[in-house]
């Protein structure tokens, strides 16, 4: 049985004639221990999809099942890493993580909680910055805090909403490795939302493209049969990688072209030509 299941999900914003259907007919199954990536254009409804899964939003119709139970509201079992870090700026790194841990394990003593905080801050190698506030950190460091906060709650499933979207390529690569490391160690189910096909191929077991909204729906899935641990440099020469990458990009390009064709309105340009100044001065 699937660990997380989305059955015929529709989501509309607004009502009656103002309604826009953002997601339509979304079906998705994720199995335990799997790493799934959903790839899509910006504005295709990815964040809405994530919020449906983590319980911040409710679908207009259809059901989200987590371990066979319908999702009602948020839960500590599903940890979320937000796109824009969402750290509380008035708390230090340690306090941000501590707040999450305290909510997740209300019965543990303060010392135990502090030990968990220290462990996860160390895991994202931010121990020297544990008493700093988010404002004093770089973008990459902030995102690592967000990762530590989500993981320290020991969720059974990690949902990542474009977690590395705002970072530079180098930091991005490092953090991808860190997340994979942690995922490999604790073998949790993971769902990654991204707009970067390479990132998806590097990290996930399966990639599912999201056709852009309105009326966004999921496309056919692509299996990534590259053995772990994956090596970025070697992967570039891997025939399998090339094939999958090309297939996904082709699919996404086709969608893009389809969209262009849909915009069939014609714009007539005025018939103008530059004045002939040269002759005027003669």
């Amino acid at each position: 049985m699937a660990y997380l299941e989305l059955n015929n999900i529709y989501k509309t914003y607004g009502q009656d004639e103002h309604a826009t259907e953002v997601l339509s007919n979304i079906n998705l199954s994720i199995y335990e221990g799997e790493f799934v990536a959903i790839v899509g254009f910006t504005g295709s409804g990815k964040t809405t999809l994530v919020n449906l899964i983590n319980g911040l939003l409710e679908p207009t119709s259809g059901e989200v099942l987590f371990k066979g139970e319908p999702v009602q509201g948020t839960s500590h079992e599903r940890g979320v890493i937000f796109q824009n870090y969402s750290l509380l700026p008035w708390l230090t790194v340690g306090q941000n993580v501590f707040m999450a841990v305290k909510e997740a394990f209300p019965k543990k003593s303060k010392n135990e909680l502090n030990a968990i905080v220290a462990e996860y801050v160390e895991m994202v190698s931010l121990t020297p910055a544990i008493n700093k506030r988010p404002k004093e950190l770089s973008g990459g460091m902030r995102q690592r805090v967000a990762v530590a906060r989500a993981l320290a709650m020991k969720p059974e499933m990690i949902i990542m909403d474009e977690p590395l979207g705002a970072l530079d390529a180098l930091t991005r690569g490092n953090l991808q490795d860190e997340i994979l490391n942690i995922w490999g160690k604790e073998k949790r189910t993971a769902l990654l939302i991204t707009n970067d096909v390479d990132e998806g191929i590097y990290m996930a077991d399966r990639i599912i493209p999201l056709r852009p909204g309105p009326n966004a729906t999921l496309g056919p899935e692509f299996k990534i049969d590259i053995e772990r641990p994956r090596d970025k440099t070697e992967m570039n020469d891997n025939a399998n990688f090339k094939k999958t990458r090309n297939a996904i990009i082709e699919y996404l390009m086709d969608i893009g072209n389809e969209r262009k064709l849909e915009a069939s309105e014609e714009f007539i340009l005025p018939d103008l030509s530059p004045k002939d100044f040269v002759n005027q001065f003669k």
Partner: peptide, 27 residues
């Protein structure tokens, strides 16, 4: 809204939400 989402995802109680999230951010 991001902070409110954090409070929801962490499942903070109403008091925690007011004192740890809402008040500091509106100070």
């Amino acid at each position: 809204k991001d902070y409110i989402n954090v409070a929801k995802v962490l499942k903070l109680g109403p008091f925690q939400k007011i004192f740890k999230v809402v008040l500091p951010s509106s100070l």
